[in-house]
Simulated assay, not measured.
Amino acid sequence: MRILIVEDEKLLAQSLKTLLERKGFAVELAYDGATGAEHADTGIYDLLILDVMMPGLNGFELARHLRRRHSAVPILMLTARSDLSDRIEGLNAGADYYLTKPFEIGELLACVRALLRRQGGQVDQLRLGNTALDLDAATLCCGEKSLRLSAREFDVMRLLMQAGGGNIPKEVILTRVWGFDSGAGENSVEVYVGFLRKKLKSLGSDVNIAAVRRVGYHLEVAQG
């Protein structure tokens, strides 16, 4: 499960990241609302943890932005604003739960697990054309054929499938899959796209990874 924490208190954000990673979650951080929105718009996260008081785009605005885009990702608001009016605004903005600071670690973990349980079981595979990506087994399937993907192949394919045919810039794929500080170059994306193209072809898939110069990659279904 992948979690995005959008929190401008860097020490708290890092502490939450460490805590959740010890529990087996994959966690990424953003320190302001605009960057958080950019990350969340990729659609690759299973849960968002949002602070409310942030520079630029605050947590309420970010939640509203995502719900306007019909994102159903669970949102946990984590904030020092404890007034009833703030809770109501957060829930009306699209938050699924509103937890005030200071909080107990046990309560935070219980909220995270509850929201992920609610999310779990809704989607266990992504499908396009005659091809499916099994999210539990990390396999690419076409009819009776299937191939297991490496961790990075899976992350790239999941990103493309979740975009539903929309273009994803190469730098976004690089950041989302390899991370901000990995040192990997854009040629890494090209290499893994090549791996995936070969696997799609070997499965007899009608899905192709198309490249648009200076725009990015997207999936296309061959017309029969």
Rank of each mutant, 00 (worst) to 15 (best):
V193Y: 00
K199Q: 11
K199T: 06
S205L: 04
G216V: 05
A211C: 12
V193P: 00
A211W: 11
L203A: 02
V193E: 00
A210L: 13
Y217I: 04
S205P: 04
S188G: 06
S202Q: 13
Y192T: 08
S188N: 10
L200G: 02
F195A: 08
V191E: 12
A210S: 11
V215P: 03
H218V: 04
K198P: 00
G216H: 02
G204W: 03
G216N: 02
L200R: 02
V215S: 08
V215E: 09
V212W: 07
Y217D: 00
F195I: 06
R197C: 08
Y192V: 07
R197Q: 14
E186K: 14
D206G: 07
N208F: 12
V207K: 05
K199M: 07
R213C: 08
A210Q: 13
G194P: 03
D206A: 09
E190M: 09
N187M: 10
S202P: 00
V191P: 03
R213H: 13
V193G: 00
F195H: 15
K201N: 12
D206M: 07
Y217S: 04
E190Q: 12
R214Y: 10
L203G: 03
R213F: 10
R197W: 04
A184M: 12
D206Y: 07
V189R: 04
E186G: 14
V189G: 02
G185E: 13
R214M: 09
R213G: 03
V215F: 03
L203S: 05
V215M: 08
A184F: 12
L203T: 01
D206T: 06
L203N: 04
R213T: 15
R213L: 11
R214C: 06
V215H: 01
R213Q: 13
K199V: 04
F195S: 11
A210Y: 10
V212H: 11
A210E: 14
Y217L: 04
G194R: 03
L196R: 07
I209S: 02
L196E: 07
G185A: 12
G204F: 02
G194M: 06
A184Y: 13
F195K: 11
R197F: 04
Y217Q: 03
K201Q: 15
D206P: 00
A184L: 11
Y217H: 07
G204S: 07
V193I: 15
K198E: 15
G216I: 04
N208A: 15
K199S: 02
E186H: 10
N187R: 14
K199P: 01
Y192W: 09
L203M: 06
V191F: 13
S205D: 05
E186W: 07
V212M: 10
N187V: 12
K201D: 14
G194I: 06
S202E: 15
S188H: 09
A210R: 13
S202K: 13
Y192P: 01
V215Q: 11
R214I: 06
V212E: 14
L203K: 01
